[in-house]
């Protein structure tokens, strides 16, 4: 019979933000289900996704909060930032306006999370290169100037989606290891769970594809 009360060692809270229609829910869906869902209903309020990943042979449960993008719902979505360990800030490379609004999203992300929250900039829809409205270089520069991690992704093809979510987790885990993220702080966005594996963890296990409960 089971000994440990949890089957993972950490829970990381992520929040996905950005203008409406940039593909936030599709990125989440691609990450948790490995599928592109073109007609995924627009998010009202907040929706959740989860997936268990492995970083440095630690099992980490990502609890991902996917928010509504329209400006007037910000009052509500702002209440969901609290305690996020990672923030994925998304724009659409084919719509410059969504890129222009990044500074305002970034302000929210900085003000409403703790200083150690890892902010990852995602330029979505990179499969639509022909309609590109924002160059990779300028976004890269914006990211560097603001100390953000950055990738261009495609929720449709899945390109780089896995990396964006995993790199964020690695960075958070690194922050825990080097002590810059204090787990005892009230809103670190990380919960440590005393996982006691019931069976030896095997290395030839397939990825935890069925642990999505969104």
């Amino acid at each position: 019979m089971a000994a440990g009360p949890y089957n993972y060692s950490y829970i990381f809270k992520y929040i996905i933000i950005g203008d409406m229609g940039v593909g936030k829910s599709c990125l989440l869906h691609q990450f948790t289900e490995k599928k592109f869902m073109a007609d995924c209903p627009h998010t009202i309020g907040v929706e959740f996704g989860t997936r268990i990943i492995e970083v440095a042979s630690q099992k980490i449960k990502l609890q991902i909060w996917d928010t509504a993008g329209q400006e007037r719902f910000r009052a509500v979505t702002r209440s969901y930032y609290r305690g996020a360990a990672g923030a994925l800030m998304v724009y659409d490379i084919t719509r410059r306006s969504t890129y222009n609004h990044l500074s305002s999203w970034l302000t929210d992300a900085r003000n409403l999370t703790n200083p150690n929250t890892v902010i990852f900039l995602i330029g979505n829809k990179c499969d639509l290169d022909a309609q590109r409205d924002v160059t990779y270089e300028e976004a890269k520069q914006f990211a560097e100037e603001n100390g953000l991690m950055f990738l261009e992704c495609s929720a449709k093809t899945g390109e780089n989606v896995e990396d964006a979510f995993l790199d964020t987790a690695k960075k958070i885990y690194q922050n825990i290891q080097d002590g810059s993220l204090d787990l005892n702080a009230a809103e670190s966005g990380v919960q440590h769970k005393p996982a006691t594996p019931r069976n030896p963890i095997t290395t030839d296990q397939p990825p935890n594809k069925e642990n999505c409960s969104c």
Binding site: D39, C40, P41, H42, Q70
Partner: peptide, 17 residues
């Protein structure tokens, strides 16, 4: 133009099931 864009996006994903 902006409103057209918003409506266009949402119509494509309203009750498509």
């Amino acid at each position: 133009k902006e409103r057209r864009g918003l409506i266009d996006k949402d119509v494509m994903r309203t009750d498509r099931t």
